[in-house]
Amino acid sequence: MNRRDALMRVSTMMGGTLAAPWLTSVLSGCSNTAEEKQAILESFTPEVKNLIAEIADTIIPTTSTPGAKEAKVQDFIADIIADCFNEKDRKDFFMGLNEFQKKCNEANQKGFEQLDEKQRVDFLTKTEQEAKEYKEKNKDNKEAPPHVFGTLKSLTLTGYFTSEAGATKALAYVHIPGKYVGCMPLEKGQKAWAT
């Protein structure tokens, strides 16, 4: 399998309705060179990015202010995972994302992106509960990778509230305050400071 084929397979699986445990086989399989595996792991195909965008946008949806997708949180998440995560954490993230989509398929016979808004919220709420139990169960196990939901939620909030849309439209952002007032009444509608 050449690199292009590998990427194609990833795209298909992530976006498709069939959730084969492709990543596990890729990682443990003998048909891929180390370079190819790396290429897969580091490639955020449009489908993978779209899945991340839809998850982020369910965590932080559009209201009277922009949501995570509009704030391009998916790009931030991809940058962080590609450049700031170490190899193990990156692998864990992709394994977790695959598992996430697989479970979604099992529960809904659809990939996450195909769910309607209510189904998405329900599935994420259920996943968050699972993540909580997983964390509890593994609290003494330092080797256990973080649950993918925790990673996605934390990066979604960080990416959104530090984005231009999140900081300036959802929250209140003052670039150069110029003064400090230690005590002032909280006016109705006063948003929290972004920084």
Partner: peptide, 10 residues
């Protein structure tokens, strides 16, 4: 102090 806040980043 739920009705109190501050301004600026000291």
């Amino acid at each position: 102090f739920q009705d109190q806040y501050y301004f600026g980043r000291r």
